[in-house]
Structure formats: structure tokens, C-alpha cells
Design a protein around this nucleic acid. Structure first.
Lengths: 179, 179
DNA sequence: TAGACGTAGA
DNA sequence: TCTACGTCTA
């Protein structure tokens, strides 16, 4: 197989619990939570249709955590701040299409939040200096409640997905407040 | 510590033998062979001076395997084909400086060669298709014999380092011919 | 072949 | 902040 890989799953990943923390995308991939190294929305094909398996909120899009159970998640693509290319309207392809399909199929989507933590470096030369590190936290399963189109920060059309946390899961409020 | 990390070493890495194969840079990092994810030349600071610890030949620079024991390795930087930026003359900083220092100190440098292998994909949608994968092979310890400056393919000044394989190691000729 | 919510170190 | 011989999917 590939360098780091496990099979893709929809929904729960055995052995991973709400609140579990990870340090990088490669770790998310090894564990099976989120397979893509770069994209925020991961998905798989089931019966000829793509469904979202997981999303990562790395604070690079205008996502909003409305409450401990509602996350407004932005679609991907078209953003000039990321690509340096001309801005474009988002389209229902790849991750965006997968989230739309997941809404219609009411299939669960794993949500991974992120936070910056500061640590002491242990690298020769910068030893002891404070450095920022990304931390990934598994927040549990969500359903895509609705989506809409709006004008984003740069004037282009972006999709917004209302992610609603499934209730039958351990609460995660305290951790979220820290995030 | 970081997501995937072990301490940096000069010379042999315990448990790694000539001919050992790896599938990606993250794996090289975990094993301790080569710590940087992107740069071809890795190095560490010892007594206030940087020394090269390892180099990767990923066939993206004009490196030449002259024989089973001599590799002409190009310095890094300035290359417009990589960065899309204006081409620049290479300078004795970072990796290039480290290789120069390693020559003067006659310290060993780990050499990692690469090869493309083709495999059958096991991803839904492209299952069964032939895909190309990078393979990394540990070739052993080298000494930097000499360096010089020349005009590269694009007209800029590039450094060339003559890497000479240390004799007291298992031979690796057959594998190299396959590479 | 291009594009993407990466990653670490200087 | 910027760069870099990455990595994967479509």
C-alpha cells in the first residue's frame, strides 16, 4: 500500500474516542480519521456516489463554531488567499459535492478541530524557544443539516454547510471552549 | 516532541542497513535517516558548525551516479523549475554550507537514493490501475571528496559535490543498477 | 498534470 | 515569513 494508509471508513473509527488528540495530518491518516494530507474535506465512493467521511477545521477558511453542537463549515476551492490564483465561485465537485450528498443521505461525518499550542523547542540552535504547534482533536460525528450559498470574504460564491453534532456521543464542551 | 521525530545522528543509524527500502519522507524521518520533509540536504549543528547528516537524490536536480561509489550531487536553491521564482546563483548557506563543512571535517553523510516503482492501485475508483510510487533506498555512508561551482542547466551558478562512498560497507552495486 | 485547510526549520 | 529533491487524488 501507500506510505501511511489504512482503509477508509464512514462513521466511527474503532479505537478513536471523542477528545483524542493528534499532532499532524500524517497521524490522522495512519489512524484512519482523515486520509487526505491537504484537503479539508475527505470522502469516499459508495455505490457510485461520493460521501464525506471527515472534515478538518484548520482555521484557514471562515468556519464558525456556533455552539458546542453546530459548526458552520465552508466549502473548498476558489479561495485566492490559499492558491494565489484568481478567485472563483465554488462548485459542487469533490469535497463540496460529497458534503451535499452526505446531507441527502444523512450519513455521519467525522469532525476534527484544531488548536495551536505552544511548546518549548528541543532542536539544537533554537532549544528552549517557544514554538507553535498544531494540534488536532477528534470532536465526533456530525450530520450535515443544511447548506447554502453566500458571498465569501473575497466576493466569490462559497458554500456553507451546517454541521450538527449527533447527540448520542460524549459531550465535548470543555475541550471546545479551550479550542 | 513533533509529530514524527527521533534524534538526529551523524553517520550510522542503528538498525538501518545498506539496501533498506522506505516509501516516503515521513518514514525516513521516523527511522532517523533524513529528518527534513522537503529539503534534499539535511544537517545538524555540532560545536557551532553545521555538518551534513544525509542527502536524498530524488532526481529533481542534475545529480549523476558516476559509478557504484561516486555520486555527483547538486547543491540546493536557485532553481527556477522548482520554485517558479527567478533563478539565482546558489550560495553557501544551509545544506550547501553543511556539505562544504562536511568535506573539510571529513564526516560521513548518509546517502538515500530513490526509484520509481509501479504498483496496482487499491483505491476505489482507480482500483487495479497501475500507479507510480516513489521508493527510497539507503545506500550507505559517503564522504564529500570535493566540490566545485559550475553553470547549471538554467545558466545560474550551482555547486556540485563529489560524494565518495566509504569502502568498509556492504556493496550495493546490484541494487544501484536497478535504480 | 494540477491543486490542496501540510510541515519544519532558518 | 518564506522556502523546500512531498504526497495524494482527481
Amino acid at each position: 500500500g501507500k506510505c501511511v494508509n489504512v482503509s477508509k471508513l464512514l462513521g466511527l473509527v474503532p479505537g478513536v474516542n471523542v477528545g483524542d488528540r493528534f499532532q499532524c495530518r500524517a497521524e490522522l491518516k495512519v489512524i484512519g480519521l482523515h486520509h487526505d494530507f491537504h484537503f479539508g474535506i475527505d470522502y469516499m465512493e459508495i455505490d457510485g456516489k461520493i460521501l464525506a467521511t471527515s472534515i478538518v477545521d484548520a482555521h484557514r477558511y471562515d468556519n464558525v463554531l456556533k455552539s458546542s453542537r453546530v459548526l458552520i463549515y465552508s466549502g473548498e476551492g476558489g479561495n485566492p488567499s490559499i492558491t494565489g490564483k484568481p478567485l472563483k465561485d465554488q462548485k459542487f465537485v469533490k469535497g463540496n459535492l460529497a458534503l451535499k450528498n452526505s446531507m441527502e443521505a444523512r450519513t455521519p461525518v467525522r469532525v476534527i478541530l484544531t488548536s495551536k499550542i505552544s511548546k518549548k523547542s528541543n532542536v539544537v540552535g533554537t532549544s528552549g524557544k517557544e514554538i507553535e504547534r498544531m494540534m488536532y482533536i477528534y470532536d465526533g460525528l456530525y450530520i450535515v443539516g443544511e447548506y447554502w450559498k453566500e458571498r465569501g470574504r473575497f466576493g466569490n460564491h462559497v458554500y456553507k454547510f451546517k454541521m450538527v453534532r449527533i447527540d448520542e456521543q460524549p459531550p465535548f464542551d470543555m475541550i471546545k471552549q479551550a479550542v
